[in-house]
Design a protein around this nucleic acid. Sequence first.
DNA 1: TTGGAAAGTCAACAAGGCTGACATAAAATC
DNA 2: GATTTTATGTCAGCCTTGTTGACTTTCCAA
Lengths: 164, 164
Amino acid sequence: MVEGGGSDSLLFLTDEQLKKGIEAMFFAYRGFTADPDRILENYAYGRAHHRAIHFINRSPQTTVNNLLSILGVTKQSLNRVLRRLIDDGLVESRVGKRDKRERHLVLTQKGAALEAELSEAQRSRMRAAFRAVGPDAVTGFRQVLEAMMDVDMRHHFSLLKETE
Amino acid sequence: MVEGGGSDSLLFLTDEQLKKGIEAMFFAYRGFTADPDRILENYAYGRAHHRAIHFINRSPQTTVNNLLSILGVTKQSLNRVLRRLIDDGLVESRVGKRDKRERHLVLTQKGAALEAELSEAQRSRMRAAFRAVGPDAVTGFRQVLEAMMDVDMRHHFSLLKETE
DNA sequence: TTGGAAAGTCAACAAGGCTGACATAAAATC
DNA sequence: GATTTTATGTCAGCCTTGTTGACTTTCCAA
């Protein structure tokens, strides 16, 4: 599909290319969530539980408020999910030491076990994809994704990067 | 692809790197859907309507069954969404000529207008991201996403690529 | 001491998944 | 020609996960 833009290729910015990027995101995200979804079914949990477990594992001792800002849902919605994880003994809620109003969330052994199972499934697919395309493609992948995030989410994402 | 884990880097396959890829997907997908979501609110439609509109636009005259296999939902679920789009005059359902059991779906002018609005918002963000990182990164992005899809979805995706 | 922040909870609602059952029309097959 | 299969549509009911709004308790901080 030939466009203007001289001989140096801006062809990767055509609407066609952009639409392909959009569809790639759609189909890839489905693949991305497919394996954990299957596992979660066995425990009668949903994606919301997975997300909570994931981010509690990433940042042990995180507070409810912090988790809320990462997940971008209402506290009522998170509470329903968290309530069950706590009742089921996957998550422990500890009263803050400095600030006793805060609750610090950590995975129990049981919670960590499920996290490991979910994470391994997801990493396994990601690993296969990364291996198939090589490190340069992976770099590009990460760059585009980061550029596509909302700015405030980029902040949460970079926090992880610093642990490199 | 270099293997063997000597001094040449397989570091991009560490669990740390894979987890970063996972979080990047999570946060980026949120950004990816944020703009259309805001627009859809004005019309009291949801993401499910967006998806239907998108794929009908991509493949005019597509059948209900084909749409079902692309979207991966039940016909009851799709029907609810489609029903409303038809009643609202965004989608037209035409009886098939060769096979009268089939319904061929097309966007009306009104439907095409909403599609354009949604698509432009989404392309706009994608364009900014692509522009910010350059063509090589975009290539890597597409390669990783395609490698991450389920095989049958890769088929649907490639159909689009052939129109290049 | 008082105002605001952190967390939790109740109630009600909506979107959009799901299953199961059933209906109709038309094509395909025997 | 009779029967089976396919494509579609629809009813009913259920679940998860999001929402808003109201209200409480605890506790920090000004």
